[in-house]
Computed example of a mutant assay.
Amino acid sequence: MRCLYRICFAYLLLPFMMFCGCGAFGRCEATQQMTPLLIAVNDAPVPFRGSDGLVHLVYELWLTNMSSGEADVEEVEVIGDGAVLEKLDTTGVSHHLQPAGLRESSEVLARGTQSILFLNVVLPNGTQIPKQLLHRIKAHYSAAPPGQQEFVESGGATTPDLQPVMEISAPLRGDGYISADSCCESTRHMRAAMPINGRVYVAQRYAVDWEQLDASNRIYSGPREKLESYTIFGKPVYAVADGVVAVVVTGLPEQTPGKYPANISIEEADGNSIIEDLGGHHFACYAHMQSASIRFHRGDRVKRGQIIGLVGNSGNSVAPHLHFHVMSSELSLASNGLPYQIDEFKITGATPGTKAFDEAEEKGEPITVTPVSPPRVVRDSLPLDQLIVSWTPR
């Protein structure tokens, strides 16, 4: 037993050796394969329909490098019921892999560290939702002996969560709204993995920051630091469904646009806000409103389409907007972010992307909009990122 222990322990120090040698001793039949990369899914994806008409599976793959050197992730395949649904090469991995606790992406896993691969698997039309997802990862390990540095490993098996997707109405009314930082490639919300209460949550996985264009395609016209310069400031916010007020935060001041707030606590991050219990373990968060506009208390009932406040710039906000997301509990950060589908809206255009939008907002310049003509009516879908959307009451 002493000799066997030494042999196996030596192999543990070289995690690229394939077997522990049990067969040579005739003492065990099962193969013991080293897996230097630990692969796991903490929150199974909930399939939903996006405004592109396709079904999306959005979730995070947790990767832990247990080797004594760097691991370069070269390829990731998402396999559903035996078929490859998504394939990321080195470039794709470098855009979606984020070291735990950081917001910069990298395809390199440092030794003894954990990273998160943020995935958006889009199912082609007619594709069945897979019963099981598995992940096959090819990586190069610098600490391995020559000739053994390429390693392919499979893991992270998970079953899509087929819970019903909440159908809601729009939280705003009118034209020219931009679905800023919405699903499914934006880094601000989708990658906001936060350690809260001893667990990592992605409560804002499907969050959106709604902003609004004026007739000149500007976010604001006039002095940037003036709240009233922003088209969306003061617009009514509507309850997206019948429900009960679970949390109310008021009394917080408006922030000065263009300046990042300092020393914002977790409790004040959403600013003046309401969290509404929609039932079925679904909660809607309406954030950054004006304090005096909120006249509800915990336990009050609200009706779909009822005005619950006005758009403001309170809390952790650099410009007036409505932050909205749906989650699994009344805690805006210690929750699992859940998809939702808005009953009907019109897509009238699209921006070139987040970078162009941010630059236009910072400089106060018109943003380039690619019009959709005629406007495309979309039903029972989640608005994807950087769309220009119009809503009318139903």
Rank of each mutant, 00 (worst) to 15 (best):
R2W: 05
F9Y: 13
A10R: 12
G21E: 02
A24L: 08
Q32V: 10
Q33F: 04
L38M: 14
P45G: 04
P47I: 03
L57W: 00
T64S: 15
M66W: 09
S67W: 03
G69W: 04
E70W: 10
V73F: 06
V78P: 02
G80F: 01
V84F: 00
K87M: 12
G92V: 01
H95F: 01
Q98T: 09
S106R: 01
E107Q: 06
V108Y: 04
Q114Y: 08
L117Y: 06
L117I: 00
Q128C: 03
L134C: 10
K138L: 13
A139E: 04
S142G: 07
P145D: 11
G147D: 10
S154V: 10
P160M: 03
I168N: 04
A170C: 11
L172I: 12
C184V: 07
E185I: 11
E185Y: 11
R191W: 12
A193K: 14
V202R: 08
A203P: 03
A203K: 02
D214V: 00
N217W: 10
G222D: 10
Y230M: 09
P236V: 08
V240E: 10
V247S: 03
V248I: 13
V248C: 05
T256N: 00
K259F: 00
N263H: 13
S265L: 07
D270N: 14
E276W: 03
H282K: 07
H282P: 02
C285H: 04
C285F: 00
A287F: 01
S291A: 12
R295I: 03
R298I: 08
K303H: 15
K303S: 15
Q306S: 07
G309Q: 06
N316W: 11
H323K: 01
S328I: 04
S332V: 08
S332F: 09
N336Y: 11
P339K: 00
I342V: 02
I342C: 00
T348F: 07
E365G: 06
P371G: 14
S373L: 12
P375T: 07
R376T: 08
R376W: 08
R379M: 13
S381D: 11
P393K: 12
